[in-house]
Amino acid sequence: MTTVDELLALGDDALIAAQRLAEWTTRAPELEEDVALANIALDLLGQARMLLSYAADLERAGLEGAGRDEDALAYLRGEREFRNAQLTELPRGDFADALVRMLFFAAYQRELYAELAAGPDERLAAIAGKASKEVAYHVDHAIMWTLRLGDGTDESHRRAQAAVDRLWPYTFELFEDRPHLREAWLAAVEPVLAEATLDRPEDGRFRPTGGRKGVHTEHMGYLLAEMQSLHRAHPGASW
């Protein structure tokens, strides 16, 4: 059966990815893209809410009395209690970072949700089924941009390659719990990089890890400080 920790890992991935992506609002290269990125951030936020609510319900079932809800989980846990992969918390970076990260992350989510949608946990399967349609579009959007940045101008190629090189090591952590998914992920990602005239980095020894155990990058504390500040300033308040 699904555990609270597993749900937190799924929900935290979506939440932190949404928090980072939403930073692009008012900052995208064109207005059309501002709208597109906000759509994707809203999808991720929706996934996070469903997953965290499920985690909260599951946690409550094993407790006496009132448990936590999605907001208590999002706003009142400390950094060491967050289970997201480090890829999602890395700073916003430039537009190439955003879209290459989207490619890596959405392609992972697509494999993951496809598996969960066919799994034995009905509630999780329903969430994954809905999310599958969303991430299919995220993958599509990320591919569209990876091709344009990789095979666009010299500058865009340079930036896209730098983003690929920077982010590649962080993709290993995504598959720690489900190593079998990486093959399908590579089969999706590698042809895109090739078509975008980008080099697929070597699988080196630098493979940051720890997110699933609550060990994060130094960036995570600032992300949470910002996200949680207002909620924490008014303990017990309704919004």
């Binding site: 064109e30 059309e32 893209e33 709208v35 597109a36 759509n39 599509d140 959007h141 569209m144 344009r148």
Partner: peptide, 20 residues
């Protein structure tokens, strides 16, 4: 109307902008 560099992008922008 909207702006896009090519048809593929125009279709996607249209989806995001006009069918939210």
């Amino acid at each position: 109307s909207l702006h896009a560099a090519d048809a593929e992008q125009a279709l996607r922008n249209a989806r995001d902008l006009y069918t939210r």
